[in-house]
Simulated scan of single mutants.
Amino acid sequence: MTIVWWIGSLLGALAAVGLAIIHLGRGLVPVTIHGHSMYPTYASGERILVRRLGGVRVGQVVVVEQPDAAGGWARGPVIGTAPARAVALRRWMIKRVAAVPGDPLPPTPIPVASGVGGAVPSGHLVVFGDNQRASFDSRHIGLVPVERVLGVPLVDRPARPSNAVHHVGQRPTSRH
């Protein structure tokens, strides 16, 4: 084996690692938590890695784009392959999914468009903060379009018993 072969092998390995890092960087995005809506599960100022994905389920924590003051979104959604710098230009909220398309709307009053009926329509979610006293969530903004979901935290944390909330389809838990 010659030195040329070793250098070629090393360069090939470095190129493969570089491509893996670029691919991983588009699949994982760092997000800083602001506010207390998910406390004590997540604390304000904490940085988490968010894994981009397609589908979500009830009880799962998601990072969703925060609407503007008028309750809408001025720009189109961030696409799944957008680089971290594009993600950083948006405002994000971390919430727990309470209902997915087809689920009954929760008993908690939320603003919904007329004609929705009693179920979450296709392409939308109901999201609540674990700490509902400090949360800006579906009780204020209504249904959240699925296209506004960035992803889920890389490390899943269940709601802590002291702040557990009722999710549609589950039995209520105590809130101390």
Rank of each mutant, 00 (worst) to 15 (best):
T2V: 05
T2Y: 01
I3M: 11
W6S: 10
I7E: 00
G8Q: 12
G8E: 15
S9V: 13
L10D: 10
L10F: 15
L11R: 06
L11C: 14
G12L: 07
A13F: 13
A15M: 14
A16R: 09
V17E: 04
V17D: 02
L19R: 05
I22H: 11
H23Q: 10
L24G: 06
L24S: 07
L24M: 10
G25K: 13
R26V: 02
G27W: 05
G27D: 06
G27L: 14
V29G: 03
T32E: 15
I33S: 02
G35S: 08
M38C: 07
T41A: 08
Y42W: 15
Y42E: 02
Y42D: 00
A43F: 15
R47G: 04
L49S: 08
V50A: 12
V50K: 04
V50W: 00
V50G: 08
L53G: 11
G55P: 14
V56W: 10
R57L: 03
V58A: 13
G59W: 03
G59I: 00
V61Q: 00
V61D: 07
V62D: 13
V62A: 11
V63R: 10
E65F: 10
P67A: 09
P67I: 14
G71D: 12
W73I: 02
R75A: 15
R75T: 10
V78Q: 01
V78C: 07
P83Q: 05
P83I: 09
A84Q: 08
A84I: 10
R85W: 13
R85N: 14
A88L: 05
L89F: 06
L89P: 00
R90F: 01
M93V: 11
M93D: 12
I94E: 05
K95T: 08
V97W: 04
V97F: 01
P104T: 12
L105H: 01
P109E: 09
I110F: 03
V112L: 04
A113R: 14
A113Y: 01
A113C: 06
S114G: 15
V116F: 02
G118T: 13
V120N: 04
S122P: 04
G123C: 06
H124Q: 14
L125A: 08
V126L: 08
V126M: 03
V126N: 02
F128Q: 04
F128I: 08
D130C: 06
N131E: 06
R133V: 01
A134N: 11
A134W: 05
A134D: 11
S135V: 02
F136R: 12
S138H: 06
H140I: 05
H140T: 10
I141F: 12
G142C: 06
P145D: 13
P145K: 06
E147N: 11
R148P: 00
L150T: 07
G151V: 01
V152H: 03
V152Y: 04
L154K: 10
R157G: 04
P158K: 12
P161G: 07
P161Y: 13
S162T: 13
N163R: 11
N163P: 00
A164C: 12
A164I: 05
H167T: 11
R171P: 09
R171A: 15
R171V: 06
P172C: 08
T173Y: 03
S174H: 12
H176G: 15
H176Y: 00
